[in-house]
Write a protein that binds this DNA or RNA. Structure first.
Length: 424
RNA sequence: GGAGAGGUGGCCGAGUGGCCGAAGGCGCUCCCCUGCUAAGGGAGUAUACCCUGACCGGUAUCGAGGGUUCGAAUCCCUCCCUCUCCGCCA
């Protein structure tokens, strides 16, 4: 959520900045609602005050044993006017709420203009896309051997976009999770946390998935209203919901492995082959809760931590800064890391690292006590994948494939896999 | 599944119709005292919105939403959540 004060006082400026994101803010409608809100709020509060004054007088008169009949009559006359004003006011407030809840975050000034993926700006590339002296297969073909990637079984059990992994690939998948968690917690200073995979609507609202993106998530049936998490960002960032942190509790750096569930509504036909786009995938997520003045440094740091995994696994990648049009709802600035996939002969997203500034914090009511300042201040929240495990697995299969169809295990992963040299 | 208890400010915890935005304690901030890794005294200390140049002032908020009433933290209804005991189960 944006600062309501900012919306009221600098509406044209806010609207201009949101345009970079491809969001059209109906300024006329907003101002009109705001004006209405103001008049009706003043009216409603005035009437309420009149009633309060009289009610108090009744109490005092009764205490003294005086007659209260005339006062009672005065109050009765206020009734209709007041309930009409109240009704109008809450109607307007609902309309304003419905509008502001769906306004995305304002892009940071360093975010390039642009419409979609095509306009994202490359920041750097690392490593060289591998050249093979044979025809490179994609992970689907590589995984077919011994049904290490069993797409048929996934479909049988659950339908499209679900996959079963077996044997060496299942082990590699597990090894990757542990490797990532170890690097981030041991070398990068993150606290490892384990969280629920089902969350309340309040949690999804806090990080911005609700109310605008209801159709993207899986809601479970049952007496309780719960959703499967689309990313660990939701439960982990919500850890600071409704809390005021003391200065020594900031920054917080947390790493968390969870499965992620996405309905992928609206992406029918995209990436239908292979592991790239699944309804269920696993991810190791990095989250930082920081002081506002530190958040852009934290974004660079966190992105570097995600890059470190790719570098340790010796996977070629590039780093892009998302243009306004490609930026997510809650993000002010996002770096995507894209790993090289020989099977597709292109770079594919494997991590997305965002600074949400105080946008999520305002919805979460997550604040900290800034020394020397009376009011608690909203924190800034940073999150990023470190990394998407399924896609990392794809990258390893495709980048480490041999002419004979076998797949080498990256050096640093071998200790996790009984020091084997190849996946089998 | 059965039976109970409860949700109040940064935290703990009083408060069964008006004098309650809310006692008291803890914590925190400032001041005084004390010459020491301690204690004592005093003052202050919720959030949002409206009004004002500012001060003052106003409105709302005691889990959420409705209701009763001139007036609700307090009474009634519905919902949400937490806890305890029993049963069942990993």
């Amino acid at each position: 959520m944006l600062d309501p004060k900012l919306l009221r006082t600098e509406l044209p400026d806010v609207a201009a900045k949101l345009e970079i994101k491809g969001f059209v803010l109906d300024q006329a409608k907003f101002s009109e609602l705001e004006n209405d809100r103001k008049t009706w709020q003043i009216e409603a509060e005035k009437l309420q005050n009149e009633r309060n004054v009289r009610s108090k007088a009744i109490g005092q008169a009764k205490a003294k044993g005086e007659d209260v009949a005339s006062l009672l009559q005065e109050v009765a006359e206020l009734g209709d006017k007041k309930s009409a004003a109240d009704a109008r006011l809450s109607e307007i407030q609902d309309l304003i709420g419905a509008l502001t809840n769906r306004i995305p975050n304002i892009p940071h000034e360093s975010v390039p203009a642009g419409k979609d993926e095509e306009d994202n700006k490359e920041v750097l590339t690392w490593g060289e896309p591998k050249q093979f002296d044979f025809e490179a297969k994609d992970h689907v073909d590589l995984g077919e051997k011994d049904s290490l990637l069993d797409f048929e079984a996934g479909i049988k059990l659950s339908g499209s976009r679900f996959t079963v992994m077996r044997g060496g690939v299942a082990k590699l998948h597990r090894a990757l999770i542990q490797f990532m968690l170890d690097v981030h917690s041991n070398e990068h200073g993150y606290e490892e946390v384990s969280v629920p995979f089902l969350v309340s609507p309040a949690s999804l609202y806090g990080t911005g998935q609700l109310p605008k993106f209801e159709e993207d998530s899986f809601k479970i049936s049952g007496e309780r209203e719960l959703y499967l998490i689309p990313t660990a960002e939701v439960p982990v960032t919500n850890l600071v919901r409704d809390t005021i942190l003391s200065p020594e509790q900031v920054p917080q750096k947390m790493v968390c492995h969870t499965p992620c569930f996405r309905s992928e509504a609206g992406s029918y036909g995209r990436d239908t082959r292979g592991l790239i786009r699944q309804h269920q995938f696993e991810k190791v997520e990095l989250v930082q809760i920081v002081k506002p003045e530190d958040s852009y440094a934290a974004l660079e740091e966190l992105t570097g931590h995600a890059e470190a995994i790719l570098q340790k696994l010796e996977l070629p990648y590039r780093k892009v800064i998302l243009c306004g049009g490609d930026l997510g709802f809650s993000a002010a600035k996002t770096y995507d890391l894209e790993v090289w996939l020989p099977g597709q002969n292109k770079y594919r997203e494997i991590s997305s690292c965002s600074n949400c500034e105080d946008f999520q914090a305002r919805r979460l009511q997550a604040r900290w006590r800034k020394p020397g300042q009376k009011k608690p201040e909203l924190v800034h929240t940073i999150n990023g994948s470190g990394l998407a495990v399924g896609r990392t697995l794809v990258a390893i299969l495709e980048n480490y494939q041999q002419a004979d169809g076998r797949v080498k295990i990256p050096n640093l992963l071998r200790p996790y896999l009984a020091n084997e040299e190849f996946i089998n």
